[in-house]
Amino acid sequence: MNSIKKSIIPEVIAALFILLFVYTATTKLMEHESFRAVLSQSPLIGNKAKILSWLIPILELITSTLLFIPSFRKWGFAGTFILMVTFTSYITYMIFFTKNLPCSCGGVISRMTWSQHLIFNIFCTALAAIAWRLTLKNKLFVAINRNSRTPA
């Protein structure tokens, strides 16, 4: 029962992140022009707006693909964790330095305030870390079981 829970929890979390990343990446690509314009207003990354406006949704889609394929899920969670830490750091910077700028995120998430977005991102980062850890633990569990079944 415990091992079933451990295998289902990462699967559910992976599905949630796939939903989040595919949704935000698609809306960023569909509204690419305004996404690029908002990025260009950022004092931190404004001069890299053109490349980042393509790179961010592409990275989100690659991470979603890794999360979708069970054998690559471990790498998917690692990518998710790195992406979420990066986004959270950026939001923290924006809150301190340029609070009045519109959010450059995709879809309904762009309607959040910066503080709401920060809380949402911290929650997602923690979720990604938990899922990544569970995936690594599951691998260890399978490896130990395999070893114990090897005939002497």
């Binding site: 699967e11 559910v12 992976a14 599905a15 949630l16 796939i18 939903l19 989040l20 990343f21 595919v22 949704y23 698609t26 809306t27 569909m30 509204e31 979603s64 999360l67 979708f68 995709g106 879809g107 309904v108």
Partner: peptide, 17 residues
């Protein structure tokens, strides 16, 4: 689950795009 998530994401983005 992953397929459902992709499908839902595409449906949502179609409505908010």
């Amino acid at each position: 689950l992953g397929s459902m998530a992709v499908l839902l994401a595409l449906v949502f983005s179609a409505f908010t795009g």
